[in-house]
Structure formats: structure tokens, C-alpha cells
Amino acid sequence: MRLWHRLTGDMTTRGQVALAMFAALLLAAPAFIGSYPLSILILVVYFAYIGQAWNVMMGFAGQLSLGHALYLGLGGYTAAALAFHFGVSPWIGMIAGVLVAMLAGGIVGFLGFRFSLAGVYFALLTIAFAEFTRILFDHFKWVGGSAGLFLKVSGDPGLWHLRGGPVMFYYVILAMAALALVACRLMLTSRLGYHWLAIREDPEAAQASGVDVFRGKMIAVLISSGMAAVGGVWAAFYYKNLFPETAFAMGRSIEVILAPIIGGLGTLIGPFIGAAVLVSLGDVFTIAAEKIGEIFGVKTAGLKQIFYGLALLAIVAFRRDGVWPWLARKLGFVHSDPYLPPPAGKGR
């Protein structure tokens, strides 16, 4: 019960019921939706997961990374290369991938935080590392260089080799997202989580309150890069191909950060809401652009991107803190005073 309170402490009963219903819907979804909606749903959950990973660094600890493709790419490439060359299971490869990504994150973090690079300067460092890793991999023949790395489509199917249909991939990413959600909630309600918030809000005051700011930032970047690498492994096996130009692309780093920003930076549900909004908007605009093209008999290439950009602008302009904090209040999912004591009789 105490754990349950820690997980849902600031949610109203209505919020908890809504969350449970949502979880049930997501679990049951593959049974009653077609393959196209399922592919959309897979993307939503994937973006929610990697958004959650990035959120640990930016939303919790306030450190802006614009190079998370580095960790996704390293995780994906490590596991994929081990599977390709040695037939290693992606789950084993994932461990290696996570370690490689954490090493990279540790180097970026150490350089940035030891030399007190803050804000945009730290962000530039993260971009630089992702970019030069991209160029490095272009010439890294063992993993295919710029020609890419392709995973075998045939072979023993099954979860152990992450080889199978969309339903399997859906449940894997859903489990990862659910685990990440619970883990983030536990971290955020721990001493470490409060230290992160203090660092985010005011590093100088945090230090005066006894927070080891360097240590807190390092832990954030290590956890965030490790979590991102897990997402990268999943994506590598889902798409079954890897190219440096996409795996480490700047655009991929931007894709990572959109969902948590639109959904609500630093919130736990935000990345889910943001991913749902973004992916469905993208889809709606694709269809809309096609329809407009048919009706007026014109080419509409790029129209989708214009719609998409305008929609993002509108969301950020009108819901500066993201969609979720506003939505949660409107729907009465959170307590106005989140500091109600735990239910009586549960003992401390």
C-alpha cells in the first residue's frame, strides 16, 4: 500500500481509475485494432518511452541534451552488431549497448559538468558528440559504414531474438514504457529525484542545501543515456536496419525531445500524451494533405510539414507548460494539494 501511495500519491481516485482504464486499453488494443492503427500505436509508445528517457535529464535534472540520438544509435548499433556478427540475443546485446551508451553519456556529462558548461553550451556539446559519432560510423566498416547494417529477416522467430510481428514489438515497447514510467516515478519521489529538481530549479541554492550537484547531474545523464539505449535496441530490431545518417541524425535527437515538451516537461504522463498528440497529428495531416491535393488537383509535398509546424507552434504558444499539466487539472486527475498524508493505518 505504501508503494501504491508513492506511485499514485498526487492522483485523485478519478485519475487512478483513468490511468487503470488507459493501461487496460493499451494492453487489449492489438486484439481489436488493425495493423495500420497498431503501427501508429507502436510509434506512440516508442516515442513516449524515449521521451521519458530524455525527460530524466531535461525534465528532472534540467540538463538540455540535443544529442540523444547518440545514445539511441550506440545502443542500437551495439546490439545489432553483436547479433549480426555473433548471433548474440538482443537482450544480451542490450546490456552491452546500455553500457556503451552510458560510457558515452558519462564522457559527455563529465566534460560538460566538470567544466560547468550550462544551458545551451552544454547542449552544443551533446550535439557535437552525436555528430562526430555519426561521421565516425560512416567509416566504421565493421558495422557497415555508410552503407548501413541490415539484420536478418529470417531465422528463429521469437522474443529471445526479437524477431516477430508487430504485436510482439508492441508488447515489448509497451512493457518498456510501463517499466520506465514506474521507475521514473520511484526516482522522482526519492531523495535523488528531489536533488534533481533542486539542481534544475537553482543549482547554487541546491548546493547551499547540501546537494552534490555534479553527482546528481552525472547520475541523470547515466540513467538517461542507458534508458535511451534500450529504446535504440528496440528500434534497431523493429526496423531491422541501421544507417549512421539516420541513427545519429540531428533530426532523431529532435524527435526524442518533442513528445515530452509538448506533453509537459518533467511530468511522467507528458511524454505519452505528447507522443500521442504528435504521432496522430502527423497522421491526420498526411491524410489531410493528400485530400487537399486530390480536391484541388495540386501537388502537396511539404504541406504536411507546414501543418505540423503550425500545430506545434500553436500548442507551445497556448500550453507553455505542455498539454498534460493543463489536461490533468481540467479533468480532475490530480490533487490541488498533493501533500495529503498517506491513508491512515498504513504506518510509517
Partner: peptide, 15 residues
Amino acid sequence: KPFPGLSVLDNVLIG
């Protein structure tokens, strides 16, 4: 230098 975005309680809790 309060932690501006946090509640009063969380500010003191961090201490």
C-alpha cells in the same frame, strides 16, 4: 533563491 517551480514544502524538504 527559492526553487521557484517547486512547492513551498518541497523547497524545505530538499533541505
